[in-house]
Amino acid sequence: MHRTEACVPCIVKQTFGDGLVHQSEEVMTSQKGDQVNVLVYTAPVRNAEGQIKNVIEMSTNITQIRQLQSQLTSLGLVIGSISHGIKGLLTSLDGGVYLVNTGLAKNDRARFEQGWKMVERNITRIRRMVLDLLYYAKDRAPDLERIPALAIAEEVCEVMRGKAAEMGIDFRWEIDRNPGDFEADSKAIRSLLINLVENAIDACRVDKKKNAHQVRIGLKGYPDYIEFDVEDNGIGMDQEIRERAFSLFFSSKRGSGTGLGLFISNKIAQAHGGEIKIESELNRGTRMIVKLPRKVPASGTAATKA
């Protein structure tokens, strides 16, 4: 371990000065280039006359403790964000149950059906949230099979078309009719794409600067890889959001995001040996490009831990 400059304050100097034991915490760089947190103690060594001739410095590596602390902080954050999400979902579920009950009591079929749809919709949201969390909690390797890219894209369009229409968003697709197949975990890829489309819809929903909004899903087959892209003309991202978009627990959807969606989507792409690229401009819109190789390289399947 080495450092290029003296610590400020330098506790060795302090011990030379006052003859007392000092303690500090430093971040150093190991020879391999890793950051190491160390706890440093200094103590004076006196000669027969009582003068300080030397100072002993002892260091303890506390990197693991600090890493554990930061993981616990993250865990605290995710629990807070989950509990907020669940409170909102429970309120909506309560609402659905209220409409079902009062609809039955008043013999009001329209109200009953409206309530039942609310119940169903919120159960789906809770299910998705739990699945996302499980994906986060369990670091699993993808369950690979050869799947037709067209079928995945069509399924995602099918699921999301209704949601976009509900929000008054024009939903279109530009799909290569013959993209071929690729090696993937179909459940994981489906949830990745649904996540991107949900984000695109949210980005349009909160955008008040334009009168008309579009979300477009694209699919193209290339010799070595498949490319999906999801484009919207919603609020877009500034540089800071772009840079932090894939970070765990980072969400720009204040309150309504868990900060898990893009983190997990990115993890899924990496586990397939692929990548997600962001092209986005504030107030203009966002394009997310997902490149997935036709054959997952051996290293791609190694689950990557956050």
Binding site: G88, T91, S92, G96, M118, R121, S256
Partner: peptide
């Protein structure tokens, strides 16, 4: 409220 479902709920209630 930004959630349609919660608005519907409170409106009905």
């Amino acid at each position: 409220d930004d959630e349609q479902d919660i608005r519907t709920y409170l409106s009905a209630l």
